[in-house]
């Protein structure tokens, strides 16, 4: 366990060093991140300019969902997506061999291969959105609510990571999948809206199959103090089950890996 923590620290340090090397890029990316955070508010402003409440969600409550969306987007693009692009490239070129030969768990190595540290600015943006939303509501979340939402954030990260492992696993079977990260991002975009808006088939898809609802709507509910404890427990169980499933699929598909060229 300690060995893996040390490894994680080393990988993180390497990513930060790489990021610091390109200082201009760092500033540009940071500026872009802030710009995106405000830009992603345009649709919700337009929609709520016409209605004061949609599917039972007021503007401020929907803002909290957007806050979580921003935080999770930071996690996705900062910690998940960079490694995804790297590993898909490895599989396509056959250089995954070098990773598999190393004396550590391959899943651990590929998923910590690359981080984009400037994306942590997204988390700051998310917190700013929370502040605005709660300030407009004129109340602040209780300590218990904050704690519950942090636990749910952890679950959401687990789910996102599991989803990512599933996507990478598919790359073992269909080799040319450079655009998988794009797919993940474009589907994830739906998570910016409270899940109650969706009805019928879409709702099932977004809660069970691609659990976007668990990633943003549930943590938002927890922060607002409107989430039933049983639902929270369900999310916890779901996140653990989903990651176990992803681990299982990863172990199965790595058995299918046949080095491409080398």
């Amino acid at each position: 366990m300690r060995r893996y923590l040390t490894l994680l620290a080393i990988q993180l340090r390497a990513s930060i060093a790489v990021a610091m090397q390109y200082r201009v890029d760092f500033l540009v990316q940071g500026g872009l991140a802030l710009f995106w955070t405000s830009w992603s508010l345009v649709p919700i402003l337009v929609v709520y300019g016409r209605r004061s409440s949609i599917a039972g969600w007021s503007f401020e409550e929907a803002l909290v969902v957007i806050g979580w969306f921003t935080v999770m987007k930071g996690v996705l693009e900062g910690a998940v997506n960079p490694s995804l692009t790297a590993v898909v490239e490895h599989i396509r070129k056959g250089t995954l061999d070098f990773v598999l030969l190393k004396p550590a768990d391959a899943q651990f190595l590929v998923s910590t291969a690359k981080f984009a540290p400037w994306r942590s600015l997204d988390v700051v943006g998310g917190i700013a959105i929370f502040a605005v939303a709660f300030d407009r509501m004129g109340r602040w979340p209780s300590a218990g609510a904050v704690l519950a939402s942090l636990v749910l954030l952890l679950c959401a990260t687990l789910i996102l990571y599991a989803l990512w492992i599933l996507v990478v696993s598919s790359a073992f079977f269909v080799v040319k999948v450079d655009n998988l990260s794009f797919l993940l991002l474009s589907i994830f975009d739906a998570a910016r809206w409270p899940a109650d808006i969706f009805r019928g088939a879409l709702r099932v898809v977004f809660t069970v199959i691609i659990p976007l609802a668990l990633m943003t709507t549930y943590p938002a509910r927890a922060l607002l103090g409107t989430l039933a404890p049983s639902h929270g427990a369900l999310v916890l169980v779901g996140a653990l089950a989903f990651s176990a499933f992803a681990r299982f699929v990863w172990l199965r598909s790595i058995g299918h890996y046949t080095s491409a060229s080398s």
Partner: peptide, 11 residues
């Protein structure tokens, strides 16, 4: 990855 209009349609 182009299914966003369906999501917006629901919304």
């Amino acid at each position: 990855s182009t299914t966003m209009p369906l999501v917006m349609l629901a919304l």
